[in-house]
Design a protein around this nucleic acid. Structure first.
Lengths: 316, 316
DNA sequence: AGTTTGCTTTTTATGTGTAAAAAGCACAAT
DNA sequence: ATTGTGCTTTTTACACATAAAAAGCAAACT
């Protein structure tokens, strides 16, 4: 059965929204709420129904308005507002990046579904989507293998990232003087400076800036495969740093300064300078990631992690 | 319920295998058969049981041998040997590339599952896996949009392909003289010549040669993201040409000659020549694909294909 | 000691069922 | 004519069920 996470999230958002309405004043129309809360009208009506039931909303139909009584609406717990599929993603990433997920280990759907307390269908769906991240591989009829968050993975990831990033940077400096992208870039530069001014307190905000910057570069000549690939990067970094807070402030400060140097190189329109700044930034990002990669013998003894059974192995 | 496609395919393969055994001679052990037929021992036993039942195999346990009577084993129809998930893939590609799949059209799981006569679960799983090909996009809670097999798609695909291919070609010519890859390349060159000798009858064999060539190039410095991307190319070409046979002989002959020129450039170790040969080959491959792309206004009027409803649109 | 097989236990592929959410429709209100 | 609402129909997200296939185990056989 589908969970009502959508409803609960919408309800919680609606609580804030209603709080800003004067007691006795009209509630926005269902259509407007639907667009504000980003859910269908069906869900909006459910939210309104519950609010009416709890006495926060009075009247019905077109005459709906905020109750004159002071009602404190209890929100639903945060954890109930996230759909099962998203929970599985989080739990899996945690299991993979934090727990004992050694390269070569086999993953089995039933086990994960029991571990996470969800239906196998959901786990299976997740693994199928997750496949594109290059960290797991399917053995039809025989589960999945975890390929490991290894230094090889990081190296391969960054090789592609560098190709894509350089391509976009080169395209950027070919933009005409009057392209609006230059203004965006200047704006972004300022936001970096602002961040650096208060780096001690705001260093968490860097990751938003980071993705904004790379999205701006890629948007100059859009390519769905590149965007796709950046989703992978974003995902990896998101979870990786969520559980690895070491030196976070320091790391982000360095990266922000590298971004500024990179942006300045772009403004100079000097291809060589751009390539150097870009290369330096990526090199340091790679180092950071590499450091927390699974230490493994994979590059020394290939295939050491294969499992053995008394039957012949199937699949490639 | 799981279909027994695995069993039927294994059975059909086993029929050929048993045919080559002398009447009265011993049948290979279950373990050996399991490895030959690429299925588990469980399935092998089922195959043997059915063969015994039909009188083609006599004795049991270790004393199992081929029957002395001449039994003609009926194979299962080819169509029953392919798992549902693979059938869905084929049917979907056909629907997409051949039927009226206009860009912007929404795809809905229930509809497809009815159309294909399979459970929604399977369709859903397929769509999730297929997402990475960049032709469809998920709107959580509201189905999928087909982005269209358009010229933009082809252009984006080839932009990446060119980057990857050039990278691999450059890595190739940096290989030491005594690398075994050079011998592989020479071998491949010869196979191209052989094919061209009999191009009129063997032009279908080109696609194997094509993927062998590109796989050889990529294997010089392997990168899972590049391999992943080549899966997309392979998939697109596979289905595309399966339903578009126009000029196939001609196209393949041209491509084979381009490959030879490309290979010769690699042997020359001349970077400029390599880049030119590679560029020419990809350009002509792109042209071929472009010609059969969906003609659309997408580049003139952006967003013309959006659907409208009396409710606000959800999602990005 | 290493295979081979009979039998048992798990796991995967695929179908079915259902509450929640979205989409659609038609009439009412401005 | 547009916008809003009540109600109906579809579709999605998720749980659960089960035959088929795979994996595991130990006794039997070389």
């Amino acid at each position: 059965m589908k969970t009502d996470a959508t409803f609960k999230r919408a309800f919680n958002d609606a609580v804030d929204l209603v709080a800003s309405i004067e007691p006795g004043a009209a509630i926005p129309s269902e259509t407007v709420l639907s667009s504000n809360l980003k859910v269908s009208r069906t869900t909006v009506r459910k939210v309104l129904a519950v609010m009416a039931e709890r006495g926060a909303v009075a009247g019905s139909g077109r005459a709906r308005r905020k109750s004159r009584h002071k009602i404190r609406l209890e929100k639903f717990p945060q954890s109930e507002t996230v759909p099962i599929s998203a929970q599985v993603e989080t739990r899996f990433m945690q299991w993979m990046l934090r727990d004992d997920a050694q390269p070569g280990r086999t993953i089995n759907e039933l086990d994960l579904s029991r571990r996470f307390g969800v239906a196998t269908t959901v786990v299976r769906e997740f693994l199928n989507r997750f496949q594109r991240f290059g960290l797991i591989e399917k053995r039809p009829g025989a589960g999945w293998v975890f390929k490991g968050f290894t230094s090889t993975f990081a190296r391969e990831l960054f090789e592609i990232r560098e190709m894509f990033e350089l391509r976009s940077a080169r395209a950027f400096i070919r933009l005409p003087e009057d392209s609006p992208f230059w203004a965006h870039l200047a704006d972004l530069r300022q936001r970096h400076l602002d961040l650096l001014d208060e780096i001690d307190t705001r260093f968490h905000d860097f990751s938003d800036l980071d993705s904004a910057f790379h999205r701006l570069l890629n948007s100059v000549s859009p390519n769905r495969f590149i965007e796709n690939f950046f989703d992978i990067i974003t995902m990896i970094f998101h979870y990786h740093y969520q559980w690895n807070k070491r030196d976070e402030r320091q790391r982000n400060e360095v990266a922000a300064r590298e971004h500024i140097a990179y942006i300045d190189a772009l403004f100079s329109r000097d291809r060589i300078a751009v390539e150097r700044a870009c290369g330096m930034h990526l090199a340091s990002a790679r180092e950071t990631l590499m450091r927390s990669t699974v230490r493994t013998q994979e590059n020394v003894i290939k295939g050491c992690c294969q499992t053995h059974s008394n039957q012949s192995r199937l699949g490639p």
